[in-house]
């Protein structure tokens, strides 16, 4: 059985999408409940800057992978030398 490595990106991107939704909700809460003070602004800025840095590092790390590679599952090694000798 084989599949493209790119399929692994689907759950990853879903996780990132959920992260974005919750991040926006968090910022919305700050604004909605009137916590728009200097402190909350600084923390929000630090959060967004950190998220951008994580996104950049992730991009650098994941861009090195060839996502079109096909990978397969097999119980046995493909090398005949690894099979038990009778």
């Amino acid at each position: 059985m084989s599949f493209s490595l790119g399929l692994l990106l689907i759950p990853y991107l879903l996780a990132i999408l959920l992260f974005l939704v919750l991040a926006v909700l968090n910022v919305y809460h700050l604004i909605r409940y009137g916590a728009t003070t200097g402190t909350s602004f600084v923390f929000t800025f630090i959060f967004m800057a950190g998220a951008v840095i994580i996104a950049f590092v992730s991009w650098q790390m994941l861009a090195q992978i060839d996502w079109t590679t096909s990978v397969g599952f097999s119980l046995y090694s493909s090398s005949a030398a690894d099979l038990p000798q009778i």
């Binding site: 490595l5 692994l8 990106l9 990853y12 996780a15 990132i16 992260f19 919750l22 991040a23 968090n26 809460h29 700050l30 916590a35 402190t39 909350s40 923390f43 929000t44 959060f47 950190g50 998220a51 994580i54 996104a55 590092v57 992730s58 790390m61 994941l62 992978i65 996502w67």
Partner: peptide, 26 residues
């Protein structure tokens, strides 16, 4: 690649958890 994807998602979520912690406190 799985380990790299998991590490990336883990950092995003831990960072969000930190911010949520601040919201809860503030």
């Amino acid at each position: 690649p799985i380990m790299k994807l998991v590490a990336s998602a883990y950092y995003f979520w831990v960072w969000l958890f930190l911010f949520s912690n601040f919201i809860d406190y503030y």
